[in-house]
Computed example of a mutant assay.
Amino acid sequence: MTTTLALIALLDGISYASLLFLVAVGLTLIFGVLGVLNVAHGSLYAIGAYMAATLGGWLTAQGYNPWLTFPALMAAAILTGVVVGGLMERFLLRQIYEKDPTLQLLITFAVFMVLENVQRMVWGVQPYFMSEPLRALGNIELLGIRYTAYQIVFLPVMAILTMVGLRYFLRHTLAGAKIVAVTEDREAATSIGIDARKVYFVTFVIGACLAAMGGALATPTTSVLPGMGANMIVLSFAVAATAGLGNIEGALLAALLIGVARSFAVYIMPETEVLMPYLIMVLILLWRPMGLFGAVQARKI
C-alpha cells in the first residue's frame, strides 16, 4: 500500500469516524443515564439529515448566502432533537423506564420502523443532497491530492468540540452534576431533591440532538435516502459496545478505530468493508466483555 493511498484511507476514516462518533456518543449517553438502548436513535440521525437537506435546499432556492447553510445544519439538528426526541421521551420512553429491557428494545424498534415510514411519507423515496457547505469551504491539497476542507477539517473539529463541550457540561455545570448523580444512584439523587424525570428528559433530548447533528453534518457528504438510519444505528451500537456502553470518552477512540479500519478495508480488501466494524467489536468484546473502557469504577458524588 503506497503512502498516498494510506493517507487517503486515513483521512477518509477520520472524516467518517467524526460522524459516527456524534451518533454513537448520543446513544451511549442515553444508555448510560436512562439505561435504555434506543434503537430509534437511527431514525433521529436520518430525520436530522432530511431536515438539514430541506432547510439548506430552501435557503439555496431563495438565493441566500451559502454560508447560511452552516447554521441551518445546526438548526435542523436542534429542531429534530427537541421536537422528535422530546415527544419520544415524554410520551413513550417515560412509560417504559421500569420495564424489562427486552420490552424496551422491542418498543424502540417499533418506533424506529414507524419513523422509517414517516420519512417516506414526508420526503418520499427520492434522494436529497445539499452540497453548499462543501463548496463554501473549498478544497485543501495534501501531497498533491485535493480534499474537501469540510470533510478533513470541519467534521473532525466538530467532533472534538462536541466531546470537549459534553465533558465540560457533565463535569463543570449544575445540570451536568445532576445527570451524573442520577446516573450513579437515582434513589439517592431523588432523595436530595433532584427531579429524575427532568434529568431523563434533558439527557434524552441532548442525545437526540447529537444523533440528529450527525445526520445533518452528513448531508453535504452523501445522498439522503430512506433506510440510512438502519445502517447508522448498527454501526453506532458497534462503537458504543466497543468502547463500553455508557462510556462517553471511549466512544471517540472506538469511533476512530472502527472508522479508520473500515476505511483501510475499502482500499485494501473491499469485500471486508461491511464486516470490519463488527469483527473489531467481536474481537474486543471477547478480550474485554465490558468494552475497551467499560471497567466498573466507584465514583464519589
Rank of each mutant, 00 (worst) to 15 (best):
T3H: 12
L7K: 05
A9S: 15
A9C: 10
I14N: 10
S18E: 11
F21E: 07
V36G: 00
A40Y: 00
H41R: 07
G42E: 01
S43T: 10
A46Y: 04
M51H: 07
A53L: 09
T54N: 06
W67D: 07
L68P: 03
L68W: 14
T69N: 15
F70H: 05
M74L: 15
A77W: 01
I78L: 14
G81C: 11
G81I: 08
V84H: 00
R90Q: 13
R90D: 05
R94K: 12
I96R: 00
E98W: 01
E98V: 12
L105W: 09
F112T: 10
M113W: 05
E116R: 07
M121E: 07
Q126F: 12
Y128H: 14
F129L: 10
L134K: 12
R135L: 14
G138H: 13
N139C: 02
I140N: 10
I140M: 14
G144D: 02
I145S: 07
V153T: 06
L155V: 11
R171F: 12
R171Q: 15
A181R: 03
E187M: 09
S191M: 10
S191K: 01
R197K: 13
V199C: 04
F204D: 01
V205M: 04
V205I: 12
P220C: 08
G227W: 07
A230Q: 14
I233A: 04
F237V: 04
T242S: 11
N247E: 05
N247G: 07
E249R: 08
L252M: 15
V266P: 00
P270G: 03
V274N: 09
Y278K: 11
I280S: 11
L283P: 12
L286A: 11
P289L: 11
G291C: 02
Q297D: 02
A298M: 13
